[in-house]
Amino acid sequence: MGFFRELLRALSGDPFQPGYGRNRLPRDWWKIDGFVALKPASDRAPFTDVVGESHYQNVLADQVEGRFEEGVYWDVVVRIGIVDVPTDPSAIGLTIDGRGCGFIPRAEKDALLEELAALIPPDCHGAICKGQIVGGFRDGNEQASYGLRLLLRRPLEIKTR
């Protein structure tokens, strides 16, 4: 039955795959030279929200391999760093593979900056953490937007193994 469903989907030009998409990072995701990896929270812990990801839908979609009817839970490595935004000169920006993907909310920014300053040595390129792209499910004939959330243990801790 699955074969015929896939064949009909392919013939109709439907870009959605059945079910949901899942991507887990390899065990050594955090071993990137020059960066401090932050220890992730468990999947059940509260996530750190990201704002502005609606402006970066193309970046998030490029990370996900295809479209899925039920949406995705796609783990990614996210770089955290100060970016120059005219409306907020000390905004904390987030990037995936060097491309912008969102910001830390202003309400959490100052506390996070303080914690990062205490953890990151001056000769380091910055901090990385585990993130998760979610959403993108089929909503009628449309695709819902993707969202991004960070799996950060608070208070911040450096991942050592």
Results as ranks from 00 to 15, higher is better:
124 C>N: 14
143 Q>N: 08
68 F>V: 06
106 R>A: 14
7 L>D: 07
140 G>F: 13
49 D>P: 11
20 Y>Q: 14
126 G>Y: 07
33 D>L: 09
158 I>R: 10
3 F>A: 15
126 G>L: 08
95 T>D: 07
160 T>S: 13
121 P>L: 05
47 F>R: 12
47 F>D: 13
10 A>G: 09
63 Q>N: 08
130 K>F: 05
31 K>Q: 15
7 L>F: 08
135 G>R: 04
134 V>T: 15
25 L>D: 02
82 I>K: 07
128 I>F: 02
95 T>G: 08
154 R>T: 09
90 S>E: 09
58 N>F: 04
87 T>C: 06
27 R>L: 14
125 H>Q: 13
125 H>E: 13
77 V>M: 02
154 R>L: 14
63 Q>A: 09
70 E>A: 07
92 I>T: 08
134 V>H: 11
139 D>S: 15
131 G>Y: 00
96 I>C: 03
99 R>I: 10
97 D>Q: 11
2 G>R: 15
49 D>I: 01
111 A>M: 13
20 Y>K: 13
37 A>I: 09
108 E>H: 12
140 G>I: 08
17 Q>N: 11
121 P>M: 05
110 D>M: 07
152 L>D: 03
65 E>K: 08
93 G>A: 02
46 P>T: 05
161 R>H: 15
106 R>Y: 11
111 A>D: 08
29 W>V: 04
153 R>D: 11
12 S>P: 06
100 G>K: 07
161 R>G: 15
149 R>W: 10
132 Q>E: 12
155 P>F: 06
81 G>F: 03
55 H>F: 15
151 L>T: 00
76 V>S: 00
47 F>T: 13
159 K>C: 10
90 S>I: 10
51 V>Y: 01
72 V>L: 01
160 T>Y: 09
21 G>D: 07
58 N>M: 11
38 L>D: 03
33 D>F: 08
10 A>P: 08
53 E>D: 12
